[in-house]
Simulated scan of single mutants.
Amino acid sequence: MKSEDWDGFIFSLIKEIADKEFQRKVWFEGDCEEQSSFTEVVCALYDDYNFEDYLEFEAKKFNSTELVSELQKLNSKLNCFIDTLDGNAFTEKFLTDKRWNSIQEEAQQIIDMKERG
Rank of each mutant, 00 (worst) to 15 (best):
F38V: 01
F38C: 06
T39V: 06
T39L: 11
E40L: 10
V42F: 06
V42R: 08
C43N: 15
C43S: 14
C43V: 09
A44M: 10
A44P: 02
A44S: 14
Y46T: 04
D48W: 03
N50K: 03
F51P: 14
F51L: 15
E52F: 08
E52H: 08
D53M: 02
D53S: 06
D53V: 00
Y54K: 00
Y54Q: 00
Y54L: 01
E56Q: 04
F57R: 03
E58H: 07
E58I: 08
E58C: 11
A59N: 11
F62L: 07
F62D: 11
N63Q: 12
S64Q: 08
L67F: 01
V68R: 11
S69T: 07
L71K: 06
L71P: 05
L71H: 04
L74S: 05
S76N: 13
S76E: 10
K77H: 09
N79Q: 12
C80I: 11
I82C: 11
I82R: 15
I82D: 02
D83R: 15
T84C: 11
D86H: 15
D86K: 14
D86I: 11
D86S: 11
D86F: 05
G87W: 12
G87Q: 05
A89D: 14
F90V: 04
T91G: 10
T91W: 04
E92S: 13
E92K: 12
E92G: 01
K93G: 11
K93F: 10
F94Q: 09
L95K: 03
